[in-house]
Structure formats: C-alpha cells, structure tokens
Computed example of a mutant assay.
Amino acid sequence: MIKKITYRIIILLALVSFTACQNDDAPTANVDAMVAEPGDLLNQAFPLNKVRVEGEGLKGLKKITLDNKIDISFNPNYNSDKAFIFTIPFDEKLGSRFGVQPITFITGSGSVTKNIEILQPVPTITKTTPAVATPGFPLEIEGTWFYNISSITLGGKTLSYTLKSSTSIIIGLPSDAVTGSELVVTTPGGSAKKTINFATVVLVSDFDGNGSRRDWTAYGDIDSFNANTTGGPSGSYATLVWAGSTANGYNGSSAGGGASFLNASNNDASKTFIDIDVSANVVGAQFAIQLNTIDGVNYGYNFKVTDVNWATKTILLSDFKDNYGFGSNTAATVDPSKINEIKVGVAQGDSPNPSAIKYDNIKIRYQ
C-alpha cells in the first residue's frame, strides 16, 4: 500500500515538473517588427492602412491600444502565434494625432508596448465651390487631410483662410486673381494642387471713375441724385432719393447703353449674375434693377432692403422678369451677351416715403 502511494506521488511530481517545463518553454509576447503598406514601412504607418505585426507569443490577441487611449478593433481570424494584422484608425474625436506614439498589444502570453509613427498623408483637393471662382469672392475648398496647414497660395501669393474642418477650407480670393492660377495647400504631409478658373467679371461702375459706365444721370420722379457720395464700401457711391412724387410713375438712374458688357460666348442666362453693393436709409426701401439689351428688350428685378447696413446683393439673370420685374416671363432665355445697360431706381409702388437708396460696385459676372 505504501509503495502504491509513493508511486503515485512520484508520478504526480513528474507531471507537475513536465507542465512547469512546458510553461517555461512557452514564449512571452514579443514584437519584432510592425510592417505597413504601402512599400513595407517599418514601424511607421499612414492612417487607415493595414499593419502586419511580426513576433512571438502573439496568439490569443486580446487588445490593441494606441497612444494609451484609442482602442483598435481587429479580426481574431487573422491572428497566429507569429503575426496578426490590424488597421490604423484616425478619429479626431478620440484624439488621434500624427507622430511617434506608443502602441500596446495584450495577447494570451502577456503584454508588449512598442512605438509606432503615424505619418500625415498628402492632402487632396476634391472640389471647389463654386466650380468657377470669382476674384474678390470667397471660395470653399473640399478635400482630405487638411491638418497642420503651413500655407495656402494662389499663383504663388499667400492667401488668408478659415479652416472649417479637416475636409473643408474657406479662402478669400484676391480681386486681381488671374484665371488658370494654381492653388496650393501645403501641410507636413505634402501639397495638394488645383488649377482655378475664374469667372468673367465686368465692372459696370464703382462710382470712383472706373468701369465701362461712368457718367450716371437720373430721371423720373426723383427728389435728388448724387453719383459721387463719399464714404461707401470702397470709396464714392451713388445715392438716389425718392420723396413720394408720382408725376411720371417711375424713376431711376443710368449711365446709358453702348457696347454689350459680355462677349458673344457668354450666352447662358443660368451662368450670369448681377452683383451690386446696396444700402438704404430705411428697412423696406425697394430697389428696382432694370437690364436693357441691344435688341431693345428689358427685364427687371425688385427687392427690398432688410438691413440698412451695406451688403452685396447677387441676382441671377434668369430671376429677372419682364414688365419691369412684375411680369410672369423670366429672363431665362435672354442672351446675356446682348445686355448693354443697367438701370437702378426705387420701386415706387411699395417703398417707404421717402426712400434713399445707396449703391456701389455694380458688376455683371459670367461663370
């Protein structure tokens, strides 16, 4: 009996010793290399790219943590004792960043921490709005990886900008921008480039002696008119005052007709705009804008001022209507290349008395 007990104890001790030896032989978690696409980057990776981790004791992967705060998901089916694969995440809300940072792997054999460098991708420009830009107006740039911007240039000139997000930027275009200029957004990741084409912009008048129409006069039921009032958005401006007279039933101002503003190829009303800086002495003052063509056709557009402060009013040509803006036929079929006169006045039928309208920087724009 004693011999049997002794024999069993010897067998038990042998089993314990064998198991201990097995555990001693089991490798602890160790990472030899992290290899990422493209080009087999070593211990470096771009966001959203796959990384292959190579080493020993990697079986039974339980958790991956980047930068001590971002848990990374993985597919356990792509896990062996020698390697596994995961994808580098990038989420601003979770605090993702570029540069060298720790990454920790917890496997069935233990935990190991290494450093990996998250590289900043080259930015891209996918879209600009509007597609055809206008000098002096804002332009929205849409794209990817707009982080840590060092500069934005157009034709080599540095631009001011507002970063809306990592995929959207608003830039201010200079008034002297030239069509075909190259827009460049530069970050530590590289540069994104796009050729910018600009709209055709014709200055009708800025009331400072510039533009294709310079000598303005008024007509009809006006009380007073001054085409050289000082203190406008960019110098002098025009002021037309209507004090309630209805003797003629109309009023306005013009610098006359002449040659067309646009060339023959600018013939699409849906691409034609009138830009005018406006203000007034009272909210509710109603502007009456009239366009005449070399064929003797006229269309109008009427709008009320909702703020006495200066603002730029942009009007699409196809929104103009016949019968001085009160008709039912739009100017959608009008050939913009035939427009040769712009008139500005007060719509007498529905304006406060008196109304003093102010206007400046009249332009016709084709894009």
Rank of each mutant, 00 (worst) to 15 (best):
K194G: 03
T167V: 03
Y161Q: 05
T167R: 02
E182G: 05
E182A: 09
Y161H: 08
N197C: 08
S191E: 10
T195F: 04
Y161F: 14
K193H: 13
K194R: 13
T162Q: 04
A199V: 13
G190F: 15
D206Y: 08
V178S: 10
P174W: 15
V204M: 00
R214Q: 13
T195E: 04
S166F: 11
D176E: 14
A199Q: 07
I196H: 03
T200R: 02
S168E: 09
I196E: 02
T200F: 02
S165Y: 12
V201Y: 05
G209R: 05
A192Y: 15
P174L: 13
R213C: 08
T187C: 01
T217A: 07
F198W: 06
T200A: 03
S168V: 06
D176M: 09
G180C: 11
S191K: 08
V184E: 00
T162E: 05
S212H: 08
I196T: 09
Y161C: 03
S160L: 10
R214G: 02
S205P: 04
I171A: 01
V185A: 02
D176K: 09
N210I: 15
S191C: 09
F198M: 02
K193S: 14
A218D: 06
S166N: 12
S166E: 11
P174R: 12
G211Y: 06
S175W: 15
